[in-house]
Computed example of a mutant assay.
Amino acid sequence: MKKITVLVVDDSAFMRRMLQDMINSDPDIEVVAVARNGEAALKKTLELKPHVITLDVELYEENGLDVLTKIMAQCPTPTLMVSFATQKGADVTLEAVRRGAVDFIAKPSGQISLDIEVVKEELIEKIKRCREMDLRINGNLADNKHEERKRQADDDTKRRDPLRKIICIGASTGGPKALYEVITRFPKDLQAPVLVVQHMPSKFTKSLAERLNETSLCNVSEAVQGEIIQNGHVYIAPGGYHMTIKEDGKYLRIDLIDTPPLHGVKPAFDLLLQSLCPLNHDQFIIAILTGMGKDGAEGTKQLKKRTSCYTIAESRETAVVFGMPKMLIETVEVDEVLPIYRVASSIINQVY
């Protein structure tokens, strides 16, 4: 089998060597070149046409965003952003995802010996998933987005108040871009709260919420312990905590719990869904988007046994990684399997 070829772009010689060693430890992947700046990165991309690029967010001579923009314009290549888990790094990384990067990984922390194996496993898995994707898909996601979003907002604000419903969305690899596609299409007065679990570190979920809030008609925020969930508001589970829901009289409140990771992730979508099982609602609308692993499938199964659930899985056509949607399809009877650009309208139809 032909090896997956990778170009590593980082201005630190130490980090280039570390990433190269981690990547080359897998027999199916090979680093064919390294670059220390944007000029070299673009030149080697055009010459070698690697299957995947790992790109440092904060290059010394030229920032990673500008380099990414040039690469996507001249030689579109699946790209993983590499960033330190700082607030600045999170902000820039999510802007890179908006500009075309597939996903990101956090650089090993100062205590490298403790987390290098975790980073290596994630890096290798994401490189393999990047190789499977088709970048042509991403160019079609936002077609007519503004026009459709405005039409949906005009139509949906005229509808009657619905029965009590809760929307739950789970995503992992490739999720930030998918969430932009879905959440920015919701009307301002959406008659349901939206609970989102995206597998990301803490500072990244805060940045994700802020960016979604800037571009969405609904209010979007990182979930806060004890707050009451309300219609028309999107709550992003904070990285490093599991987001669950507790009933408090006539209110439903966010309950953030600091228990061990589930399926290797924290937050976990399964734990959110399981916390909803005791609630008496007319319907839960569950959408599982792109991502590796099985998070959300078991929780959906448990919730469907107890109450009415409408389930949506993102289709292979647009999912960067079809793992989580595929597992949902194999675990429960899914109501719809849809490309990402049709998920929002399906959710809205169920709300009203």
Rank of each mutant, 00 (worst) to 15 (best):
V82S: 07
L252T: 07
K49E: 14
P27Y: 01
A313P: 04
D26R: 03
Q198S: 02
V334E: 04
A287D: 11
S275D: 13
T86G: 01
A209T: 14
V32P: 00
F284G: 08
K206C: 05
L19F: 07
E61I: 09
R129A: 12
L80E: 04
V97N: 02
V182H: 04
M292H: 02
I29E: 01
R17D: 12
E117T: 07
L55K: 07
I347S: 05
K188C: 09
G170K: 08
E314R: 03
I329N: 05
K3A: 09
L212K: 07
S308I: 13
T318R: 11
I288D: 02
E30R: 03
N140F: 11
T205V: 12
R136T: 15
E117S: 08
D335K: 07
V332Y: 05
Q111G: 02
V343L: 03
L252Y: 14
L256Q: 09
D270Y: 14
Q283I: 09
V194N: 04
D143F: 10
Y310C: 05
L80A: 05
L272C: 06
A73S: 15
T93S: 11
P27M: 01
I229Y: 03
E121R: 11
G299K: 10
D154N: 08
D282T: 06
L262H: 12
L262T: 12
A33M: 00
G174M: 09
L42H: 09
R306G: 00
L279V: 11
P193Q: 09
Y251F: 10
E117H: 10
L42D: 11
D103K: 08
L212I: 09
H233Q: 13
A313M: 13
K158F: 03
I53A: 08
D26P: 00
E39F: 06
G139S: 11
T69S: 14
D66L: 13
I236G: 02
D66C: 01
L46A: 10
K2C: 01
T173F: 02
A33V: 01
D248C: 03
G64Q: 13
P325K: 01
L141V: 15
L273P: 11
K304P: 01
L195C: 08
L272I: 10
N280C: 03
N138C: 01
A237F: 04
T205G: 12
K43T: 11
A13F: 04
I137K: 12
G89E: 15
N63S: 08
N213V: 10
I137M: 10
L94K: 06
L123Q: 04
A106D: 03
V220T: 10
G293E: 13
M243Y: 04
K188D: 14
F186V: 03
L217P: 00
A178E: 09
L179A: 07
D143T: 14
E39K: 07
P325N: 07
A101K: 14
I116M: 09
S308V: 15
R36G: 02
P78Y: 03
I257W: 09
N349W: 03
V8W: 00
I71E: 12
E333A: 06
R129V: 15
E214D: 14
D143G: 01
P267Q: 06
E333W: 00
E336A: 05
R17L: 12
L179M: 07
L59P: 10
Q191D: 12
E227A: 00
T93Y: 05
C309H: 05
F104D: 10
A192V: 09
E147R: 13
N144F: 07
K206Q: 14
A101G: 06
D189F: 02
A178C: 07
F104I: 11
V194Q: 08
